[in-house]
Design a protein around this nucleic acid. Structure first.
Lengths: 223, 223
DNA sequence: CGGGACATTGAGGAGAATCAAACAGGGTGG
DNA sequence: CCACCCTGTTTGATTCTCCTCAATGTCCCG
């Protein structure tokens, strides 16, 4: 999942289409805290997330970290480049994954539909990443955090007490490393949104959107 | 072209492999300043760059701009998402492109080799973009600019007076919008590198690397 | 109940943005 | 051929956003 501009319908549809040929059999279940793969691993499978949340990260030698993406149901993770994984991937919330052999993506022999669907997922990934460039390169802290909440609400939001709300399985540090900020800035920005009565922080991992329009304004136009 | 960490051999190889089935016939020639496609256009072709330099950009309503990538020989541009282009693409240096029907990427009927090569190009794109996230989200101005010069030298550098050098077909503003900085910061950083005798700015569009090791140090470890 | 990890808050500082002014340098027209 | 202009670049002064460092607070789990 990337923080794209609002109204990204594309990413909502893949699950149904892709799950066609899953066969229902060999799904993978993973506990929170476990790793799916590490940078440098040879790619044998790509996975579509059925339930749960994953985290894709890249590390610099000096410890700086970038969260590349959060993986939510419908997302496909594990695309190879030169046959290798280029991120680490671990589990934030217990997950159920549908594995597909790497060959299904790369050649698709035997199942053209599945092949096409995996390819489309890769192409959507490119487009979503392009949007995220704008986020990282050109948006302020308020815009980043507001966008993040909006997108999360659109993708996995539920109604809570009449408001759109969501649970955040990731830490403030994860959000910071995803948006190119620091833990403290995430915290301060959330506090600021809370004090403006735009959001409610029910508990550390639960956020409600009280004023959606105001939040969307901040997401695209800033403070 | 993205600013990846050094030693990204992957992106150097595609030209030869991909050009296999070009047929030598229908190449596209474009003058500097012309547009290849705009955001929202339907995708009919994807292009591999044979010569020249392209610029891929995305715009925000308020005018903020992000340069998504610079397209150099070997790169493939125009990957569709939901059948549409999601960036603008124009020409910085007169270019010669090899067009491939979108269907060659998406289904590949009739030419499995070409299909696979285009797909691999898309997968390399994903990996390169992931690296660029680190750049945008976590690196300082000096690191960004130094990395940019290093990568450019690796990909399109030539020997000039015994030093590795290159010409920059893009403006300072383009570089700024690519790295998530401002024109002024690019200029200041280049001046700083020049005064440290790490680079020489022969003219506005020509840079020589005087101390490659120092530059690489700045690229990965900062000032 | 106590400990540890994570989150919040605060004070101060650094880095890059912004605003503004001088400076090329290439192209055009006189 | 030269003066001029326009655009893009460099440089300077100042501001502001976000980071850093530090302290306090909170929640979860044993």
């Amino acid at each position: 999942m990337y923080v794209t501009i609002l109204g990204d319908q594309a990413r909502k549809q893949p699950l149904a289409a892709l799950s066609l040929k899953s066969g229902g059999s060999s799904e993978t279940r993973l506990k929170a805290g476990s790793y799916l793969y590490l940078e440098g691993d040879a790619v044998e499978w790509v996975f579509q997330i059925k339930t749960g949340v994953l985290r894709l990260t890249r590390l610099l030698e000096d410890g700086r970290r970038q969260v590349i993406a959060f993986g939510y149901p419908g997302d496909v993770v594990g695309f190879p480049s030169e046959g290798l994984h280029h991120t680490d991937c671990d589990v934030l919330m217990d997950a159920c994954l549908q594995p597909y052999r790497r060959a299904m993506l790369e050649s698709g022999e035997g199942d053209p539909d599945l092949h096409r669907n995996l390819l489309q997922a890769a192409l959507r990934e490119i487009s979503a990443m392009q949007d995220h460039f704008m986020m990282l390169g050109r948006k302020s802290a308020v815009e980043k955090v507001s966008s993040f909440i909006c997108v999360l609400a659109d993708r996995v939001g539920t109604k809570i007490d009449g408001h759109s709300g969501m649970t955040l399985p990731m830490s403030r540090g994860d959000i910071a490393d995803f948006l190119g900020l620091t833990t403290e800035t995430i915290s301060r920005t959330l506090t600021q949104l809370r004090k403006s009565k735009i959001i409610e922080i029910r508990n550390i991992h639960t956020i409600l959107i009280l004023r959606p329009t105001a939040l969307r304004g901040l997401a695209s136009r800033g403070a």
